[in-house]
Simulated scan of single mutants.
Amino acid sequence: MSNDMQNLMEEIEKSMVRLRRGEIVSGKVINVTNNEIFVNVGYKSDGIIPKDEISNDITVQPSELVKEGDEIKVYVLSLDDGDGNVLLSKKRVDLTKGWDDLEKIKEAESLVETKVIEAVKGGVVAIARGVRCFIPASQLSDRFVDNLKSFEGKSFTTKVMEIDRKRNKAVLSRKVVLAEENKHKKVELFSKLDKGMQISGEVKRITDFGAFVDIGGIDGLVHISDLSWGRVKHPSEVVTIGDIVKVVVLDFDKDKGKVSLGLKQTQKQPWDDVELKYPIGSIVEGKVVRLVDFGAFVELEVGLDGLVHISQISEKHIAKPSEELHIGQKVKVKVLDVKPEEKRISLSITAADEKEEAIEYVAENSPTTIGEILEENK
């Protein structure tokens, strides 16, 4: 080799960066693939960042983090990966800064953006500032969580509850953040609430005594008696979890944070215009819904029952209604009397039968018009 060439090689070597294993250096991205990032760190050979050293977030593609020409800091893992390349890590640089950030965030009692990457036993693994953190199932939501996998891929703000850098342990909470948010929402919502106002909400929980509806940060109770104008054995007969419903604010207590809601109050009262819908003398069909010693209650429509006295059930003498009727039976009844103010309708099965028989007889055997018969039987 000539002296000139040797001198040139020595100059090139002098201009090269002297790398040491374990140090952090700057470099320029020269190529990005699905599995690697190639970086020029000014050394005699290029550096390679393998996929498992790019980020703790295994769901992120290399191209989402860097592009050609970007200046990045990298950690030197090895000066020769076996093929003459320098083995680098971006993840370890991010981790160092990430732990620093998390410690400062915890000290300042601030919040940190977090992304869930995996559901595990007892909670989920999440990435915050490049650090793998744990969120216990009890800290994922302000409600019971039965499907941890539904959180995978979701991002939200959390609070740093515990951090131990030596043990690589960081515990986060989303529940604390939600509780604070709900506190502000409740204050704002209560300032706008008024009795009688209608508001939309989502059914969040169903119990034996009613349904809880989220009206924007507050779960108000629709008591079972306020779900429908009709009889309701269980709230699930009327609503299901996830339903969006319109409700009326019946009452609220700002100090206790309680709101009473009504669903049936958004629907027309069945006793409105009852005299027009069921005039005296008309014959209608209903369903037997209750049997008592003195008669049977027949439902004409949801929330509207009429009484058939035991004397109006059959032409023959019966000791109890169950001798002729059963729950759920469809029957024809004649309206005898209507008292809207008392919410009472008197019905008759025998009178309805007589009228039906009379109409059939006239139609078959008499020139008398059906209209005349109806008039006589009023």
Rank of each mutant, 00 (worst) to 15 (best):
L263Y: 07
R231S: 06
G98E: 02
I117M: 09
D226R: 00
V176H: 00
K154F: 15
S89Q: 06
V187A: 11
R92I: 13
V39M: 06
G281L: 05
I359V: 08
R231G: 03
G295W: 01
N31E: 15
I54N: 02
N182V: 04
K287P: 04
S191G: 08
G22R: 03
T33K: 08
F151K: 03
E360H: 11
A170Q: 02
L291H: 13
I58G: 13
I215H: 13
G27P: 10
E364F: 00
V247H: 11
F156M: 12
E324H: 03
L87D: 03
S311P: 00
D57G: 03
L193W: 12
K343E: 10
N40Q: 15
I283C: 13
A352N: 08
N168S: 09
V338M: 00
N31P: 01
S225V: 06
I163R: 05
V238M: 02
G123C: 08
E162M: 14
A296S: 10
K192V: 03
E323K: 01
H184E: 14
P279R: 13
I30S: 08
R344N: 03
S63A: 12
K246G: 09
L95P: 00
I24L: 02
P50Q: 14
N168F: 08
T33L: 10
G69S: 13
K339P: 11
T59F: 14
G130W: 08
E357I: 13
K90D: 10
S225H: 06
K316W: 06
S311C: 01
S45K: 14
M16Y: 05
V302P: 00
K44C: 11
R344F: 14
K154D: 14
R18I: 08
A126W: 00
L347E: 14
D4V: 04
L227N: 04
L221W: 01
T114C: 15
S55Q: 03
V239C: 04
L250G: 05
D305Q: 15
V302N: 10
G210R: 00
N56Y: 05
D100Q: 05
I163K: 11
E180D: 06
H309A: 09
I199K: 09
N35E: 15
L307Y: 11
R132S: 14
G84D: 05
K166V: 15
E188W: 01
K175T: 05
K183N: 09
V74P: 07
V331N: 15
I345E: 15
R129M: 05
F212Y: 11
I283V: 12
A170M: 07
Y75M: 02
K339C: 04
T33W: 15
P270A: 14
T368R: 09
L19I: 09
P136G: 09
K339Q: 09
L178M: 13
K154W: 14
I349H: 01
A352L: 06
T266Q: 10
D146P: 00
R20T: 07
D353L: 10
Q312G: 09
K378S: 11
G217K: 07
D253R: 07
P136I: 04
G123W: 04
E188D: 05
S15P: 01
N31L: 12
I318E: 05
G84Q: 11
S282K: 01
L8W: 03
M197R: 12
L263A: 06
I105H: 06
Q198F: 13
K104T: 07
P279M: 07
W229I: 09
